[in-house]
């Protein structure tokens, strides 16, 4: 199926005084795609999301949303919804009042839309409660409901899973997935790589206002390079000795305390395979073997330089 472009940004720049928030950012998002924006704090994610919502205009570059060039603030086309910097709701109003008011502002006076949105995010039972008493997760869900009132073609969400419990997260993930399946393009930011892995088909990694990676998640994982692995065995000393004998495998210095028995090794997957074979051959039982960080997280840390961890000769696990 040919997907039509929903967002097409080229060379976007945006500064606040002397601070460069975005520096030549390109972004392509197609309909039905869930696109993740990830980056350390201050990378420019919220600024970029704000531009997509029309809250500001870029200093340079071009931005097209739903085929319409966006040249000034608050001039994005119909069909764009979402939130940045929190869901932005009024605590003195009930959930239903918040949504009804927003529906009215957007010219959607159909009362059924409010009920449908509440049902979609699972807040029907608390619709008449003032949101002053809502948890952060409930507010996030209500913010999502507000975005759903107009059946958006581009949904922009800033940290939508922030503060959600596992059930709430599943709920939100399901809503986003269903929207994407129906052709809505979703651009969301998150600090959690597991959320991105669960939702996104493509990601853009930003660091200090620049794109350092953009593409499919599988490609991002490949950027991770050599991973660190935690190895817990029945005989740590023997395991250490075996690991040092495997070509291409580095052993990081151990730690004191409860992790004293944990060995951290770094190397390519074939070297790791050889380590496992040798340990089994030497009668050392393997109780745990897992990456210290996920491949996506490792890739993120490598690309953004946010890891800052020690190398194998410096000792310590991360």
């Amino acid at each position: 199926m040919q997907r039509s472009p929903v967002v097409r940004a080229r060379g976007i720049t945006k500064s606040f005084g002397d601070v460069v928030a975005l520096d030549g950012v390109d972004l392509d998002v197609a309909s039905g795609q869930v696109h993740g924006l990830v980056g350390p704090n201050g990378a420019g994610k919220t600024t970029l999301l704000g531009l997509l919502l029309g809250l500001a205009v870029a200093d340079g570059g071009s931005l097209e949303i739903l085929g319409t060039p966006v040249g000034r603030a608050l001039a994005v086309p119909d069909g764009v919804a979402g939130f940045v910097d929190g869901p932005g709701l009024y605590p003195s109003l009930t959930a239903r009042q918040n949504l009804t008011a927003l529906a009215s502002l957007r010219g959607n006076a159909d009362g059924g839309a409010v009920e449908r949105a509440l049902e979609q995010v699972g807040l029907t039972d608390v619709a008449d409660d003032r949101i002053r008493g809502f948890s952060l997760g409930m507010r996030q869900r209500l913010g999502l409901a507000a975005a759903l009132l107009t059946t958006p073609r581009l949904l922009v969400l800033d940290e939508p899973a922030n503060g959600l419990d596992p059930a709430g997260k599943r709920h939100v993930h399901r809503v986003i997935t269903e929207l994407a399946a129906n052709g809505t393009a979703v651009v969301l930011s998150s600090h959690r790589m597991d959320d991105l892995a669960a939702l996104c088909s493509e990601v853009t990694v930003l660091a200090t206002g620049r794109v350092v990676f953009s593409g499919p998640l599988s490609k991002l994982a490949a950027e991770s390079g050599e991973l660190d692995y935690r190895l817990l065995t029945s005989d740590p000393a023997a395991a250490h000795q075996v690991a040092e004998g495997v070509t291409g495998l580095g052993v990081l210095p151990g730690r004191d305390g409860p992790d004293a028995d944990v060995l951290v090794v770094r190397g390519p997957v074939p070297a790791l395979d050889e380590l496992v074979v040798r340990l089994v051959g030497d009668g050392v039982a393997i109780r745990e073997l897992a990456p210290v960080v996920t491949p996506l997280e490792a890739a993120f840390l490598a690309l953004t330089g946010a890891g800052g961890g020690p190398g194998p000769t410096e000792g310590g696990t991360r």
Binding site: T68, P77, S104
Partner: peptide, 17 residues
């Protein structure tokens, strides 16, 4: 794919809100 530019909310609705 193109879309019409979103119009501002009517003043009376903004006032009521």
């Amino acid at each position: 794919m193109t879309a019409t530019q979103a119009r501002p909310a009517p003043m009376t609705r903004g006032y009521r809100f």
